[in-house]
């Protein structure tokens, strides 16, 4: 290094003595306004949540926040612990998770099947895509009265509602994923004389997997959203039921515990899908990082 620098300086002295000093240490760059983001600050991601918690704590401690409006954070924590200890939280959580999982499973199955039918055949597309787009335009909540009439207010209605919310993003993203598979791979499959079954399992499904997994992320969060709604319609168990009951008795702290549980559930589920995404798409990760 040192040698190289002296060499440059000496060369500079010989050819252009005036410029040698300017080239030595000063980092001269063309001036370009930065439009992109600066480098991320470490640990900054959590600061918003910490700030919010701090405001909440301070408000409760000073009495600015009425505990009837919003319980103090420590009340929420102790209530959470109490609920967990006496088993109510776990029991309700299990019921809720069971519902979400069941709805998710049916929704994913329906979404993938419909995406394949409509994605791989012109007839399927003509028959299926239209109605699904119409369904997509109707808010899930607007269907609830009809679903209650059809399925009653029991478990069936709840699972169906969740599944109906889930299959849309799965369908949209899987369909889009498999329709955007490079035509060159289809040609390849033709020249390799793949039969339809192998074409679907070796080319279509893996090719549509990135799309499917993106849809799954939406679907997982969607299933929890639908859960909130259906559990407050005449439930007899579940996190939503627990919260609804707490509203009747004015137990703000239980409601907040329920909210926290929903939040943690959603976040954990999303992280789980992202992990799955990274695992399943190793072939792509070699490009990304």
């Amino acid at each position: 290094m040192g040698c190289a620098v002296t060499a440059v300086v000496q060369a500079g002295r010989v050819t252009a003595p005036g410029r040698a000093t300017a080239h030595q240490a000063v980092d001269v760059r063309p001036r370009v306004r930065r439009l992109g983001l600066r480098k991320p600050v470490p640990l900054a991601a959590g600061s918003g949540v910490v700030l919010l918690l701090a405001v909440w704590t301070a408000g409760s401690a000073t009495g600015l926040i009425d505990p009837r409006v919003l319980s103090a954070p420590w009340t929420v924590v102790t209530t959470g612990v109490d609920l967990a200890v006496d088993g109510r939280l776990v029991e309700n959580l299990a019921v809720s998770l069971g519902r979400a999982a069941q709805g998710l499973a049916w929704g994913v199955l329906a979404g993938v099947t419909l995406a394949l039918l409509s994605g791989l055949s012109r007839l399927g597309e003509a028959l299926l895509d239209g109605p699904i787009q119409v369904k997509r335009a109707v808010p899930n909540l607007a269907l609830l009265p009809l679903l209650i009439l059809w399925f009653g207010i029991g478990e069936e209605m709840k699972v169906v509602t969740i599944a109906l919310g889930v299959f849309i993003p799965i369908y949209i993203h899987t369909h889009n994923g498999l329709r955007s598979i490079d035509k060159r791979y289809v040609e390849l499959a033709e020249t390799l004389r793949l039969d339809r079954r192998r074409f679907v399992t070796r080319v279509v499904l893996p090719g549509a997997l990135p799309g499917f997994l993106l849809g799954l992320r939406f679907a997982v969060t969607g299933s929890l959203l639908a859960l909130v709604v259906v559990e407050q319609v005449n439930g007899t168990a579940g996190i939503g039921y627990m919260m609804e009951l707490a509203r009747t008795y004015g137990q703000t702290e239980v409601i907040v515990v329920g909210l926290v549980v929903y939040g943690v559930l959603g976040y954990t589920a999303d992280q789980a899908v992202r992990l799955l995404q990274r695992r399943a798409l190793t072939w792509r990760r070699t490009l990304e990082d």
């Binding site: 791979y185 040609e187 020249t191 893996p206 090719g207 997997l209």
Partner: peptide, 15 residues
């Protein structure tokens, strides 16, 4: 038994 070699290698990236 015909086989085709394309200009791009046309390997399935996920396999």
């Amino acid at each position: 038994n015909v086989s085709v070699v394309f200009q791009d290698s046309r390997l399935l990236p996920w396999a």
